[in-house]
Design a protein around this nucleic acid. Structure first.
Lengths: 213, 213
DNA sequence: CACATATATAGAACACGTTCTACTCTTGAG
DNA sequence: CTCAAGAGTAGAACGTGTTCTATATATGTG
């Protein structure tokens, strides 16, 4: 067993620790940030395949061994990147008044906004989303964290800060449909408008049990 | 450009050609079958990681180069395996009277039956489902075919042999939720009962706009 | 039959994720 | 200050997906 370094974001409560995020010295937080920056930069340029561990290490100016000490696999790395992106989106959302007359409309606004944001960077989205779906059991915790982030964004959008169990399940389904559609879009099996329509229909059905107003 | 062999299953109509399936000499169909058999056997024994191209080639008694001539990547191979499994499930279904009083119930029966069938072989399911989700654009056609199979199974279950556009979209969403739940199950982020409940809830909401009867 | 061409084979070669080794640099406890 | 343990570094090494090369075998056409 190697001695664990900064690493892992288990955090049993699911709440972020104040604002500074997790353990590690300043230098370590710096390194971790550089690594994720490098990852996302490479992903944005060439997608999943362009995120090569040696390239990430180089660009982040750490040794390959160090990279692996921080993130035990390429998938962990990319899911961590997705997590950070969602965290940022979520924070930005907090500073925004979400438009829409009904909770459903507001959820749809959030979903549409994030979808468009991701579609603006196809390579990056491809890399993160494929890693997310490919993740195996060893990255289950990281995937779960992303799930939590999506759920809480949805909850906030709908003004259900404390979702019921049923709400949670429905948010989870919406997240599933969202991710599935992003995957389809990323692999060119669905157009941007396909995605938009499907999301709208499924959200209305799941939340209101109807579509067309 | 290398000369294409048996290969690809485009089939623009989406209909299976009578019963014998696709082009190629008898020997070629034989090889193809052996390859998929070998793939599924290895997958059943050790999941995604155990499906190693050299091992598949060995077990199928073909050269590595031949394997690649038939299936251009590991993902193609596994998605083809999933496709064949679904085709079989679909055929078996055709020989079955689907129980259930309402179309929704019948769809849920089919979904539950297939889910249980897949859960009976966790490794195999893990291998196929992860490949399915990880597939890139080069395997989009194969993924689409699997999508078509799911859709037509659902359509048949509900007695909607000729689904409307709206039906299709809804079937697609159900397939998305189904696959997402299988992924979650496979990575131990969801239990079998979680999956069952989520599927039931989402199908009822998507099809009837309500749950609890 | 004979040959041209498509397929199949064995195995080397290559790429990239991951692991390992040997060494150096930091850091914090005493 | 000293030094032991942890963290980082450079780079070799390994495993598996994929590609390439050289050769052999089928196959169908004159």
């Amino acid at each position: 067993m190697p001695p664990m370094p900064p690493q892992a974001t288990s955090n049993s409560t699911g709440m972020a620790t104040t604002s500074s995020e997790e353990l590690g010295s300043a230098a370590q937080r710096e390194r971790r940030k550089r690594i994720i920056d490098a990852t996302l930069a490479l992903a944005a340029k060439g997608g999943y395949d362009a995120v090569q561990m040696r390239a990430v290490a180089d660009k982040a100016d750490v040794a390959l061994g160090t990279l692996y000490r921080y993130f035990p696999s390429k998938v962990h790395l990319l899911v961590a990147g997705l997590s950070r992106e969602f965290q940022r989106a979520s924070e930005k959302l907090d500073r925004t008044k979400i438009p829409g007359d009904t909770p459903t409309d507001r959820l749809l606004f959030v979903l549409g906004r994030n979808t468009r944001m991701m579609q603006r960077d196809p390579h990056l989205t491809e890399a993160m989303v494929r890693a997310f779906m490919f993740a195996d059991t060893t990255a289950a915790a990281e995937v779960e964290q992303v799930g939590k982030l999506m759920e809480s964004m949805f909850a906030r959008a709908m003004g259900k800060e404390v979702p019921t169990e049923r709400d949670s399940v429905i948010f989870h389904m919406i997240a599933d449909v969202w991710m599935a559609n992003l995957v389809a879009w990323v692999t060119r099996r669905a157009s941007a408008t396909d995605v938009q329509h499907r999301l709208e229909l499924s959200v209305r059905l799941l939340l209101e049990g109807r579509d067309e107003d």
